[in-house]
Amino acid sequence: MSFTEQFPIVFQALNTGFLQTVKLFFVTLAGSLPLGLLIYFAARSSFKPLALLFRAIIWVVRGTPLMLQLIVIFYLPGMVFGKAIWGSGEKGRFVAAAIAFIFNYACYFAEIYRGGIQGVPIGQTEAGQVLGMSKKQVFFKVTLLQMIKRIVPPMSNEIITLVKDTSLARIIALQEVIWAGQAFLKGSQGIAGEIWPMFFTGVYYLAASGVLTVALGKLEKKLSYFSI
């Protein structure tokens, strides 16, 4: 098969794979951004056992490879319960991957939130306090937006890393774009032993991180109307 014959086949397969990549990316963000804040609050709780538990969790999650976490989350329940609790086939793999990614990223985000919140001067909280605002009001009306402004740069880093980290889900055979490219090396739809589809997956990652860089830059600009 000539390259011009191969290309449409590969292109379509990679698009399908990339759709799965994008899905995992957004599901991870939607889950880990709020979960990270909850983990931050738990790890800073004045109830010591809770705080220690969550600090230990953050340590374990950040201290072990995401690839290992993926494998454990995917295989361990089956070994313990004797059946696949994540569901079967691609759907089960996606659920397991999403759980691993959400949890892993939430722990990193918790630390980023910590930096952002601790960076807001204590005077801001005190100003809200002497004006008779409640702790909740101070957090949501005063601290939150200042924290967001502070964390956009480190968050952007993490989010762009996430785009590329989704490829780790290949280890549990999630059919994302790397898996799709690799298929043509092994042999699929009459194409075998071709390495170029694998190389070509890089274009997808570059495009995605390009779009994200622009979008996050816009967010940063949008928050530049005030200075902290």
Partner: peptide, 14 residues
Amino acid sequence: MVGLVFQNFNLFPQ
């Protein structure tokens, strides 16, 4: 019932 004006203002920047 009381108001406080801080040395470094502590206005809400946003």
